[in-house]
Design a protein around this nucleic acid. Structure first.
Lengths: 238, 238
DNA sequence: TGCTCGCGGATTGTCAACCATTCTGAGATT
DNA sequence: AATCTCAGAATGGTTGACAATCCGCGAGCA
């Protein structure tokens, strides 16, 4: 009842992240905020996320926070145990290589093949835009923007394929892969990554499946064996 | 404030389903209830699920219903559009064959291989129990119980593998596959299915990967091409 | 007739305060 | 030393209200 000032999103700890978010329901903004924070490593695996704390930090009520945590759980960034709350999750190198990447391959192979016959000039335009952004980001050595454009590129194609479940699965898979690569070294150079996508786009415009799938496969598969010295944390999973 | 009678779960329409559920938080019970209802075809693809309606039908508040709908969304049984609510989703035959089953194969191959070295005698006991239940159910031609035991069997193994993400992904995948097979004919006979698992269990007890993965692959892969006449609904997806 | 505009109803999203349920850990007891 | 008990902390659930958004429908206009 007290005339409250319009609760702005960012709180003490997370203020520096809440910049580009302003679209859609609160809960969704919180998801993006926390997802970014987790992927960027602001939270360590094993760290607890307490609803009431987050709620007050973010200036919202517990409702949206709960929703956000549920979604993060589906993205595998967090696990929540009944009556015990949410804990940040790690990804093992093995699971990424043996499960997540193969799944990504299955999903993207299917989507790209399917999308080839469906994409409009507009879609290609959007892809070109993302490639351009990627090149800009690469030139500026801006990792975050590179990854952002990369994400959008694939999201456009998979969306265009019009396969509901495939899209849903992809969206639940990629955050873990991102988190993994953020934590344990990068794959190839940003320049290489932009180049990959430029070639991919060019191939797609011919609408010929074979070269597209070929490029795709090489783009995704085992971006690089994990840095030999750095053993990803195992056992912090549960 | 008014001394309310303990709100029992089932409402008018769904009363006949709320039998075996009594464990855990309300929201979880609702998930199981709705999941069963959707898989069993009590809701048609395209049908809307309205929070307030469900809440009053189930004798709870909107909170748990929202949570349940979120989880069903992660299981791909429902899609929810902002400010528009949740609608029941269908699965296309193609997506099952080209995406969901390959993913299931990836997940289970990895899990079974991993679990072989980790399973205790107790775990094997649990598997044997499920096989037994499956045989009983097959003899009684009880589809529901067969599927239930099948599910548990795989869940035990994948849980035993101790791979968090793999388990999470599996749990988000199987409901769609189940829904698909419930809607468009069954694969093989219940007897065959029980037999498959008996052989699988026997092979696992030797702890030799090769025959296990071999059996597994044949058990999962393309349980049967979809019944020729019945074309699964496409386009009711979004 | 065909179009746009805007309104109202329906439904989700959020808030707030409260109680219930459950887990955990620290002492106290045996 | 092992077990029991209890208080604190956190999540799960409830209620009632309000805000934000989408949709369809009808009025007004060309």
């Amino acid at each position: 009842m007290t005339p409250q000032p319009p609760p702005t999103i960012p709180g003490p700890e997370l203020a520096h992240l809440g910049a580009g978010t302003k679209a859609g329901p609160r809960g969704q903004q919180i998801v993006e905020l926390l997802r970014t924070a987790i992927i960027a490593g602001h939270y360590e695996p094993g760290e607890r996320l307490v609803e009431t704390v987050l709620a007050s930090e973010l200036g919202t009520s517990r409702g949206p926070v709960r929703e956000a945590l549920r979604q993060l759980e589906n993205e595998g960034l967090v696990v929540s145990l009944p009556y015990r709350g949410a804990v940040v999750l790690g990804v093992s190198d093995e699971e990424v290589q043996e499960v997540l990447i193969p799944i990504r391959l299955t999903v993207e192979r299917y989507s790209f093949a399917k999308a080839l016959g469906l994409m409009t000039e507009d879609d290609f335009g959007e892809l070109a835009k993302q490639v351009w952004l990627m090149e800009q980001a690469a030139a500026a050595a801006d990792l975050t923007k590179s990854v952002e454009a990369d994400l959008r590129f694939h999201d456009v194609v998979i969306s265009a394929s019009g396969q509901t479940h495939t899209l849903q699965i992809w969206r639940s898979i990629w955050p873990r892969i991102r988190a993994y690569f953020y934590r344990y070294g990068r794959s190839s150079s940003l320049q290489q990554m932009a180049e990959d996508h430029r070639l991919l786009l060019a191939a797609m415009q011919t609408r010929d499946p074979e070269p597209v799938l070929d490029l795709l496969e090489r783009h995704i598969a085992v971006p690089v064996p994990p840095p030999a010295g750095l053993k990803p944390t195992r056992g912090r999973e549960g």
